[in-house]
Design a protein around this nucleic acid. Structure first.
Lengths: 336, 336
DNA sequence: ATTCTTTTCGGAAACGTTTCCGAAAACGTT
DNA sequence: AACGTTTTCGGAAACGTTTCCGAAAAGAAT
């Protein structure tokens, strides 16, 4: 590939490269007519500024890195769309990396993004065994960071989270209202604040209604995890009356196994999912699920990052807690 | 952010920067012990090579750009995973951009990736009104390009496609075998070869069985498009007996509308989807769908690109045609 | 016409690498 | 000991920008 450079234009027009540069970033003094002359010639020659050279000298990139654990569920893609919308408006490009639920890959991704001089990072942690020491380093070096959804504890950065406590509480209460007592709690990885908050919501709903809590199982966020757990439950013959699942994928995996084994949903086992995928309204039975405002999460994260980018130096970490909704459907309602 | 550079190491060790550079890319002559000394010091100081500086001087990036039209359906994410697997093995980083089904954004994405000196591009076109003149420029400038799934005509590049003709034929024949005559064909954008091939498959299946073809409607690939078309059909009271949909999302959108309006699937309307999303097996009724080998598509595209990268200069455009499978489920089978 | 401001521009350094060229050091050979 | 080879290294240019500094050109004021 042969690129047209600023030098080519300068030579063609018998001006200095600095003049050409000024024509493009007109914050510096340049006579309007020479600027127009340069711009015209540049367009003619098909010149496009080289962002790599610019990054090198400016030590910034106008790039934002986004790291997500997976994109098989539509949750993260939607968050990205939300973030992109905001960031594009402010002339930032978005680099997306995917860590495949692996902490090591996640850190590697973060490092390559930093090496590539992103101006900031939007991150959702990979499930298990998270390691935030690198992120602590980054905050010390003043790299703007925003976590969302799966956020770490004990680190002073901005965060965008869902009100997991409240909605785990409501979802649990919903199941209790339906008359179910033995409610299994499928939790995400223990390290995630998200899991702890849901646990508290689950516990408090039981406390409020003076019911003993059911069992808890820790699990990942994929359909496979749901399948595995359901199979285990069946072989152990330890079938709960109702389930609060880690997310929709997990719930759907479980439903399939249960249905294949002859259980009726919700008559034998009621189930509630989390984070409302598009599938929820279409599977059979339709799945009751806690809906999260995915686009809003992305937008909020982008905005928080932009704030840090603008008033660099002084940065007060904020946590934005977003609200949701419980979409009640067939999987959790028994007509009596 | 303060970065440790090669100069810092050179100063610390009283050697030239060129020596330090040699220590990292040991294709040049360097005494093993000084190399070890440098590597040790570098690790100590937390040095990481700056890929931006390297790109600038080497005029290459070890980055591959992937451009996809959307990532709400799991189809494209899965393709990306496949491509990443291969590219990572060859030490390429992957930059993902998403063009939101907009041709303009797609071209912009391509340009920014080129500006960022990607070594090659893997592209799936955005639906309507595609504009390949820029891609032609790129091929003339020897930029390695591979298209997949939604590929353009009249351009000499490597491509990875699905055997749309064959599977549209089989899917149509399957519906005919079920006894359906009035089969509506929901096509993707007309510009796409994919659409034309499916059309041919659809037509030929009718010819083979001496049945007159049904109507054809052109449509996008999202659930919204399916919803819109189904609504139109209902208001026009032009309900077909069976439908071959553009993809699963579209099919699912239609199913919902039909079900809401009191139609029974498949008793009143049978339907077949395309490209097998995870949803297909879980919605109600379960959806008959043509399954595409998503990971394989990604892998094949990556491999084709790597070939071009390796023997640069001479490049024989190849087209890989991948095979699929028809998963027959409830939505298209009437027990009689 | 002289001096002083302001506008406009050119030159050059810098960003962090790689890589070419040539010189110094180390080693072999006679 | 003198010379030729090979190994190892330093210096410097280059990649395409931005930006600082200072000088030339243009205008204003006396």
């Amino acid at each position: 590939m042969k690129y047209v450079t600023i030098k080519d234009i300068a030579k063609e027009l018998n001006v200095a490269v600095s003049t050409v540069s000024r024509a493009f970033n007109d914050k510096y003094d340049i006579k309007p007519e020479t600027r127009d002359r340069i711009l015209k010639k540049a367009a003619e020659m098909g010149y496009r500024p080289n962002p790599i050279a610019r990054k090198l000298v400016q030590q910034r990139s106008f790039n934002i890195g986004i790291i997500i654990p997976e994109f098989e569920n539509s949750f993260f893609p939607q968050v990205i769309m939300g973030a992109q919308e905001i960031l594009y408006q402010h002339n930032y490009q978005v680099l997306i990396m995917q860590s495949n639920e692996s902490v090591d890959l996640e850190i590697m991704n973060a490092k390559t993004l930093v090496d590539n001089m992103v101006d900031g990072l939007i991150i959702s942690l990979s499930g298990v065994g998270n390691n935030i020491s690198y992120y602590k380093e980054l905050t010390e070096k003043k790299m703007p960071l925003v976590f969302f959804n799966r956020v770490p504890e004990n680190i002073e950065t901005s965060k965008v989270v869902f009100d997991d406590y409240k909605w785990a509480f409501f979802a649990t209460e919903h199941l209790i209202h339906q008359g179910f007592k033995d409610i299994l709690f499928i939790s995400g990885a223990d390290e995630l604040i998200l899991s702890k908050n849901r646990q508290r919501g689950y516990d408090d709903a039981h406390k409020k209604h003076r019911i003993q809590t059911g069992k808890k199982i820790t699990c990942g966020f994929s359909m496979k995890d749901g399948v595995q757990i359901a199979k285990n439950l069946i072989t152990k013959n330890s079938i709960p009356r109702a389930i609060l699942a880690a997310n929709d994928a997990c719930a759907i995996g479980m439903i399939r196994v249960f249905k294949d084994s002859g259980f009726k949903i919700p008559e034998d086992i009621a189930i509630v999912g989390f984070s409302e995928t598009k599938m929820a309204a279409h599977i059979s039975p339709t799945l009751t699920s806690v809906e999260q405002p995915t686009y809003e999460i992305g937008k909020a994260a982008a905005q928080l990052l932009l704030e840090q980018l603008q008033n660099k130096g002084i940065h007060i970490p904020q946590t934005i807690v977003l609200n949701g909704r419980l979409n009640v459907r067939e999987s959790s309602v028994v007509l009596s």
